[in-house]
Design a protein around this nucleic acid. Structure first.
Lengths: 208, 208
DNA sequence: ACATGTGAACTGCTTCACAGCG
DNA sequence: CGCTGTGAAGCAGTTCACATGT
């Protein structure tokens, strides 16, 4: 497949959300124009995004809501279950574990890890918190697809190194640290402080 | 000022972090090359990013760590205190309120709101949770700069409308909803489900 | 000699505009 | 006729390469 821009993938997620809201309202078809209005983009952008993956619409009609939903789920890889580990059972880990948006999309939390003896063994959102010392052994048995990382910044890189060494190939990082992984491992980072700083910049330079 | 790309602003945040780590290690100067290596970009990119705002380096030498830190903080608008409201006192709101990265950068949480009678009045991370019914009245008194929004997706747009009507001009949204604000209001959204879907896409299409 | 600062070249995402098809 | 699908054009962000200053 030709390389797909990250911005395109983000919009595909967005389109899927819009489709679900249309579906909930009982609508059977949608045009690129409606999709664009709800998704905050343009109709040409919608059609271009979809065109990378095929031709899903009917000229003069638009797109079938259920059909396009199915295709987008396939494209995004949401047609299967993804086994997720949460590493770091602090407040952010807790918020992520209970986040509805994850389970709804086929991301199943199968285990939670921490290194704090006060947390280990405690039942936590339906999971017993496991000792992070067991990470390597458990990885072979669980074979998780994705690790959601929510440890303090200082611990993030060493933990990432262990995750990688354990053979897990995808990490979603919430620690405010710039992490390095070898080629072949997929890493995405969400940095909330950076987002606030972006706002701060916009407010400061609003009319400069 | 000429328009600055969002990607540039993100990198400036990153450079500031690198500078702080260099400072902590007692280093007085840094080159664009070092800044690039730590920040995961190229030296040309670093120099180009900085060039939008001035000439901060010495040829043949590099940049003074404290001086460049100061300049970046000014550019990003971190030389002042930003008053932040957190609206939505659920798990995500709780995680955000206690997040160290915020206070460290001059973002001060001055109030927390919810609509759940079981939470209202409770003391919560040093703040008494306020009834969201008071939002409009309090806004006039508090004059918050930024609202961090962490309410359920269904409630997000109505709450945003009230925030905007109350005259607050900047929102950092964590609700998984596509929100609309009038021109003049600054909105940034962080959508964790969308990030996971991006990972899912990459994993699914890794070698396609 | 060394590392910055910056026009120029390049790459790639977005927008345009229209042919094609239902 | 209406709306999709798509080459072509336009624009924005990145990379190159070198003149410039210390």
């Amino acid at each position: 497949m030709r390389h797909i821009a990250e911005s395109t993938v983000r919009r595909l997620s967005l389109y899927l959300r819009v489709l679900e809201s249309f579906s909930a309202r009982g609508l059977a078809t949608i045009s690129s124009d409606e999709l664009a209005r709800e998704g905050g983009t343009t109709s040409a952008q919608v059609r271009k995004d979809l065109s990378f993956f095929g031709s899903f619409g009917k000229r003069g009609m638009g797109y079938s809501v259920p059909e396009l939903s199915t295709r987008l789920r396939e494209i995004l890889g949401l047609g299967r279950e993804w086994k997720v580990w949460i590493v770091g059972a602090g407040k952010i880990g807790a918020a992520l574990a209970q986040y509805r948006g994850f389970r709804q999309r086929g991301f199943t939390v199968v285990a939670v890890y921490d290194n704090d003896p006060r947390l280990i063994g405690k039942s936590w959102d339906g999971h017993k918190v496991r000792d992070i010392a067991r990470l390597e052994r458990d990885a072979a048995a669980d074979r998780p697809d994705i690790v959601v990382l929510a440890v303090p910044a200082e611990q993030a890189q060493p933990v990432v190194d262990r995750i990688v060494a354990a053979g897990i190939g995808a990490i979603l990082n919430f620690a405010p640290a710039q992490l390095h992984v070898p080629r072949g491992v997929t890493l995405k980072s969400v940095n909330m402080a950076m987002e606030l700083e972006g706002l701060s910049f916009l407010l400061t330079n609003r009319d400069a």
